[in-house]
Amino acid sequence: MSLINTVPETVLTTKIDDLLNWTRKSSVWYMLFGLACCAIEMMQTGGPRSDLDRFGAVPRATPRVSDLIIVSGTLTLKMALRTKLLYEQMPDPKYAISMGSCSNCGGLFQLAYSVCDGVDKVIPVDVYVPGCPPRPEALTEGLLKLQDRIQQERWLVRKGDAAQAVA
């Protein structure tokens, strides 16, 4: 059965929040930002075989238009402040994926003098992807988890206002 001539008459019912979140989660633009060996896997994830693009995630070369920062690799103390600056340059709403053991907790290098033991000491993290480094499948899973979170968000409802509306 063809959709031609039937779709224009179809009515979908949904919540405004769901519709907005569906559009937002389908265009999570991530910043071109790689730190170490995990960045190689991130490039693979964005490449044709894993193709993050099919989930609406495309790389952007500036934090000013990015929705997501994927911290991929060992975060040194020297880079930590710069990462924080990049995160602060991103417009809200913004998300962070911590990719790999180093970014999660310092990993193999957590006792080194120059390494920041986890990016969550600098910026808030939404999804932690374990692995050393995580395979592209794992990072894709991380993005899907993030999309699930985005789909759950309630931007148009605030607790106090909702109580008032009910009353």
């Binding site: 103390l77 930590a80 402040l81 033991d117 600098v122």
Partner: peptide
């Protein structure tokens, strides 16, 4: 710590 980043975990 370094600029508020704890070096202990």
């Amino acid at each position: 710590e370094y600029h508020g980043i704890s070096t202990r975990r």
